[in-house]
């Protein structure tokens, strides 16, 4: 009578990767809804396009690698990558940018490294950074102007479709412009803070509508925290670092972007709760996570303030991805029964 002999434990919790990823996807829904409300159907269309591209490219690569396709697709990681990328890209970005970014992030940033769990960089951000560098014009000027802020009529679904897929040149211009972060940075040199806020992008709104986007993502992030999908370390340290930097260095709203704009504009909340917390490419020790998050916050501020790009979450995350293994090596927690944590690299390690 041969019985099954497996190593203990013989029981499992209910955590599953697919479930975690599904929860993450669920937590983005408020943000997605707000963005759709503000920017029209473009967000929805691009997100759907990114998800489909992500799943497709993942399936193709898995097939080529002779991996079980459905088994891996069901872990929902490609879905989340596509979703996050769709949320990060400009709502009216031409379809090929979305497809290119997503396919690149899945194929090159994820599968080429060995698939799930093995990618050293956040795949979505790799794709985003690639198109940001390659197509700066489309990426920085194709940001839809909030219909709610500008008071324009929401572009119809078919119009949006043609703007995205046919790249109708004239039509999109009416709906696009620089983001509030971009605008503020460029105008504050010549104008006072009050004048800047009168600009069309803001039109009296605190952050030109972006405050609602960020609050929605903050809500989603809190949901993830509550569900213990993520820990507080990275988002909190990142937000605190960003806030401290902007308060200390940018206290003068007439010279620098104010803290409110930093915290509640651009991809701040999306980055803090959904992108920087990508476990695969982030630091894993508790202390390490705090350092990692703070690093992202500081980098975001530096690049936003003195860099050429209007937003900086992608670059900051990617830069900190580089440092994650190093941070981990030096932030091992003190284990039970040890007086001091063993830290650093063992001599002989490279």
């Amino acid at each position: 009578m041969a019985l099954l002999t497996l190593s203990s434990p013989h029981t499992r919790g209910t955590n599953r990767t697919s479930r975690i990823m599904a929860t993450v996807a669920l937590a983005t829904l408020p943000g997605l809804a707000v963005m759709t409300w503000l920017f029209g159907y473009g967000t929805l269309i691009n997100t759907a396009l990114a998800i489909v591209t992500a799943l497709l490219s993942e399936a193709i690569v898995l097939k080529m690698r002779r991996y079980p396709v459905s088994f891996f697709l069901k872990d929902n990681t490609a879905l989340v990558t596509g979703l996050l990328l769709g949320l990060a890209l400009p709502p009216l970005a031409p379809w090929w940018i979305t497809v290119f970014a997503t396919a690149f992030s899945i194929v090159f940033a994820k599968q080429i490294y060995g698939g799930i769990g093995n990618n050293p960089f956040n795949p979505a951000m790799v794709g985003y950074a690639l198109v940001l560098i390659s197509f700066p014009v489309q990426m920085t000027t194709n940001w839809a102007i909030s219909f709610q802020v500008s008071g324009q009529d929401v572009a119809s679904f078919s119009d949006t479709l043609s703007m995205i897929f046919a790249s109708a040149p004239g039509m999109a211009d009416a709906y696009t412009g620089a983001t509030p972060l971009d605008q503020y940075k460029h105008l504050i040199g010549q104008q006072t803070s009050e004048q800047v806020l009168q600009a069309s992008t803001f039109n009296g709104w605190l952050n030109g509508g972006w405050e609602w986007v960020n609050l929605a993502f903050l809500a989603g992030g809190l949901f993830l925290l509550a569900r213990k999908i993520i820990t507080w370390h990275i988002p909190i340290s990142m937000l605190v670092a960003l806030a401290v930097c902007s308060l200390v260095l940018g206290w003068d709203a007439d010279a620098y972007t104010p803290v409110t704009l930093h915290m509640l504009s651009g991809a701040t909340m999306l980055g803090a709760f959904f992108i920087a917390t990508d476990p695969v490419s982030a630091s894993t020790t508790p202390t390490g996570k705090i350092i990692y998050g703070a690093g992202i916050g500081i980098l975001v501020y530096l690049i936003r303030t003195w860099g050429a790009y209007p937003d900086a979450v992608a670059f900051a995350v990617l830069l900190m991805n580089f440092t994650a293994p190093f941070i981990d090596a030096y932030t091992q927690p003190r284990s039970y029964g040890h007086k001091k944590a063993k830290r650093g690299l063992k001599s002989g390690d490279q």
């Binding site: 697919s18 690698r65 002779r66 991996y67 079980p68 088994f71 872990d75």
Partner: peptide, 11 residues
């Protein structure tokens, strides 16, 4: 990458 395809999981 390997030749034999592992059995489908029941996830």
């Amino acid at each position: 990458d390997r030749r034999s395809v592992p059995a489908e999981g029941h996830a």
